[in-house]
Design a protein around this nucleic acid. Structure first.
Length: 470
RNA sequence: GGCGCCGUAGCCAAGUGGUAAGGCUCGGGACUGCAAAUCCCGCAUCGUCGGUUCGAUUCCGACCGGCGCCUCCA
């Protein structure tokens, strides 16, 4: 079996990876803050984690993945105050959209989606451990902070020990109660608006709410144990989020928090980071309105290595739509074929070997795609020869299924308006009649008529198939 | 200011110290009544300038260009 290798942000190197217990890989991946529907930048990261978990499964391991839903934070509270709602009334509908978008993109569900607000007791317990060990303190403002100066390893993940804080007024004015400007809040003292939107809980330090970093540590430890195999997220989370998670978790448990840290690069739109505050976001809803197949989105995301920035462009997306159309057609031909050739079997074996090797080498999906398309081209050529070996055909079908179990690139058949279908069928019947009487002028006129309505015909051996042009 | 990433054909994008995978587009051909689909053929010397080397796109340095983190952030 090929060695499985992953880039570990801790070492900044590609390293051999295997789960600690030998069978199940525990993964914690940072999920969405549910105040607004996630955009494609967020989903690039979620698709990267999807690629990771599917590849781990291809390798033969089982996966136990936890993805949190952050359902209490500043932005949610602000939104709730604006709309005169309780935070639940903001977060629940947005969570539903998240799950629907996830399903549309065929992202395999994680095993657990804990909500931060369901883990308040675990978070309080974690803070108590930190206060008891002397790494956390309650400040004058009532909030509890983590003292980074009392945790030796602080900065290891982000290499913060080698950086310095930019000169100038970066430190907020209200930070005067902290020991160190970079100490981060574990537990935030409640403000009146927090109470108003039901975002405050009782604690040993008074009414308050959890800090953002705290929720991930508490839920990860509760659901997956004190040491995770993999902790994944977007590259922007390295600092401070993941750095702080490491600090509070390891200060509390005395154990390594995550064995491997994996971070995905950004999705750019028009050359700049896609971000809500910049206004240059695209959402899954936008894609669906443009009739972009989910498979094409997957293809586009996987066509760039996960650690490299990806610039979303209309042209690239069109290319992916076409690429994925070919994949779907190849799958169809495999399904319909009656036999194969020896060379088809060979192409299938080569494809499985090449895609596995690529994926097991730090999730090199672009290279896996190259191998897939080599299989598609060679496979189509062999299918053109109409071989009669059922065993070779079976091998090809299995190979395709195995590769596609990770990439999942076969586009869905679109549902069409029944009225359109009826009209097309009527025109096709007329065209068939014309062709049977060898009236090709009439036949071509009908085809042009259909083409004007965006319908493309393919005369196959048995019947004429049609599809929508883009 | 500190830390870091990227720059490969019209577009997207792998990769290697020994003369560049794959996809889209484009051109030519086969197949087809004609198309479509499919297949075949063709299409780059790897940002610039130096250096190391028998040999660099791949290593080192400088420069130019683009981007990110350092503050909420996938």
């Amino acid at each position: 079996m090929t060695e499985f290798r992953l880039f570990n942000t801790l070492s900044r190197a590609v390293e051999p990876f295997a789960p600690a217990d030998g069978d199940i890989v525990s993964i914690y991946s940072c999920g969405p803050t549910v105040y607004n529907p996630a955009h494609l930048g967020n989903f690039r990261t979620f698709l990267f984690v999807d690629l990771l978990r599917r590849t781990l499964q291809l390798r033969g391991w089982r996966v136990n993945q936890v993805m949190n839903l952050t359902d209490v934070d500043d932005k949610i509270i602000t939104r709730a105050v604006e709309q005169g709602k309780r935070i639940r009334e903001v977060t629940e509908p947005v969570s539903e959209i998240f799950f629907a978008d996830r399903d549309y993109l065929r992202i395999q569900p994680a095993e657990t989606y804990p909500k931060a607000t369901d883990y308040i007791p675990q978070m309080i317990a974690l803070v108590e451990r930190l206060v008891a060990s002397g790494t956390a303190y309650q400040a004058e403002d009532g909030s509890v902070y983590f003292a980074i100066g009392r945790f030796a390893g602080y900065g290891r993940l982000s290499r913060l020990d080698t950086r310095e804080v930019r000169s100038g007024a970066r430190v907020a004015q209200d930070d005067y109660t902290k020991e160190n400007a970079q100490d981060f809040a574990l537990w935030k003292a409640a403000k009146p608006e927090d109470e108003q939107v039901e975002a405050a809980w009782d604690s040993p330090w008074g009414r308050g709410r959890p800090g953002w970093h705290l929720e991930c540590s508490a839920m990860a430890i509760d659901l997956l144990g004190e040491t995770l195999d993999i902790h994944a997220g977007g590259i922007d989370l390295i600092f401070p989020h993941h750095e702080d998670e490491i600090a509070q978790s390891e200060a509390a448990t005395g154990k390594q928090f995550a064995r491997c840290w994996c971070h995905g690069a950004f999705l750019l739109l028009d050359g700049t980071k896609m971000a809500k505050r910049l206004g240059n976001v695209k959402t899954v809803k936008d894609l669906r309105e443009q009739r972009i197949p989910a498979a094409a989105v997957r293809h586009l995301i996987f066509s760039t290595h996960y650690r490299k920035e990806l610039n979303l462009s209309e042209e690239a997306l069109e290319g992916s739509i076409e690429a994925v159309r070919r994949v779907g057609q190849f799958k169809e031909r495999l399904d319909d074929a009656l036999g194969g050739t020896a060379e088809l079997g060979e192409a299938a074996d080569a494809a499985v070997a090449a895609t596995s090797e690529a994926l097991f080498d730090d999730l090199n999906a672009p290279e896996a795609l190259a191998a897939l398309f080599t299989f598609v081209r060679r496979g189509n050529a062999e299918l053109d020869r109409e071989g009669a070996e059922p065993e070779a055909l079976d091998r090809a079908r299995e190979a395709f299924a195995r590769i596609d179990s990770v990439l999942d690139l076969v586009p869905d058949v679109e549902e069409e308006d029944p009225r359109l279908v009826a009209w097309v069928e009527e025109r096709l019947a007329a065209r068939r009649a014309a062709r049977e009487s060898r009236d090709f002028a009439q036949s071509d006129a009908i085809r042009d008529e259909l083409k004007e309505q965006g319908i493309i015909l393919e005369d196959k051996a048995g019947a004429t198939q049609w599809r929508r042009a883009r």
